[in-house]
């Protein structure tokens, strides 16, 4: 069963976990800003919150497809998602934005530059997310690495409410192993690449906390309509 005991591999296709993660990756979602709303910060934030709510639905269904996630008890599945949901949303935005210079691709039909972010009150967040984009772009982050890192962010979400710590550790280990395995085959020239990827996670955590704080204050403001799942997860933090 253990990969390393097999004969040498020639293609990327043999990493079973990475392949499952590639298959589980959700479709891209369109933002579809409401044409009836007047342009301005409220419209921009309403569009982003609506998009986030729909992405969250997809991400929850994605989590269920991660190898090993469904063996966790329901309460631990919830705890991981309640801690990592914003990291998952942001990492998807970051990956979509890799080909763009200084713009964030929230959706194919919703790309924001610094000017637009500023007028939506999102400049600080925009700059923080761009820092992640630049870091991954300079590494040449691949789709395989992106899906694996996203799964690791979920499994490594450091919730304080995990009941079966050992089971979560098994999930972390299997994803970590998949990343190490992938890098040892595809990037044998850089033995530190897996570590470099893992070392981006603190910035993702920090950026996610910033985003959650910001959207919590928008929620308290009460001027932007938010859907129930997005609200529920904001309240969980």
């Amino acid at each position: 069963q253990h990969h390393r005991n097999r004969s040498p591999r020639s293609s990327k296709d043999e990493n079973k976990v990475v392949n499952l993660l590639l298959e589980a990756e959700p479709e891209r979602v369109c933002a579809m800003p409401d044409p009836a709303l007047p342009d301005g910060d409220i419209k921009a934030l309403t569009t982003l919150c609506d998009l986030a709510d729909r992405e969250l639905m997809l991400n929850i269904s994605w989590a269920k497809h991660l190898p090993g996630f469904s063996s966790l008890c329901l309460s631990d599945q919830m705890s991981l998602l309640q801690s990592a949901w914003m990291e998952i949303l942001i990492l998807r935005v970051v990956f979509r934005s890799l080909p763009c210079e200084d713009r964030l691709v929230f959706a194919d039909d919703y790309v924001m530059d610094a000017e637009q972010a500023k007028s939506a009150g999102l400049l600080e967040l925009h700059l923080a997310i761009l820092q992640l984009v630049r870091r991954y772009r300079s590494m040449g982050l691949e789709r395989e690495e992106f899906v694996t890192l996203k799964a690791i962010a979920l499994a490594n979400s450091d919730s304080m409410h995990i009941e079966d710590v050992e089971a979560v550790q098994v999930l972390q280990d299997s994803l970590h192993e998949a990343l190490l395995d992938y890098e040892s085959v595809v990037h044998a020239e850089d033995p530190r690449r897996a570590g470099k990827l893992i070392m981006t996670l603190p910035l993702l955590r920090q950026t996610s906390a910033k985003a959650v704080r910001h959207f919590c204050s928008i929620k308290q403001d009460g001027r932007v309509p938010m859907h129930k799942l997005f609200l529920e997860l904001l309240e969980a933090n």
Binding site: L20, S61, L66, E232
Partner: peptide
Amino acid sequence: KEKHKILHRLLQNSSSPVDL
């Protein structure tokens, strides 16, 4: 758990879990 009923429901309803 009461507070997180949508997440709870979605996790219970999603299809085709994968086990290692």
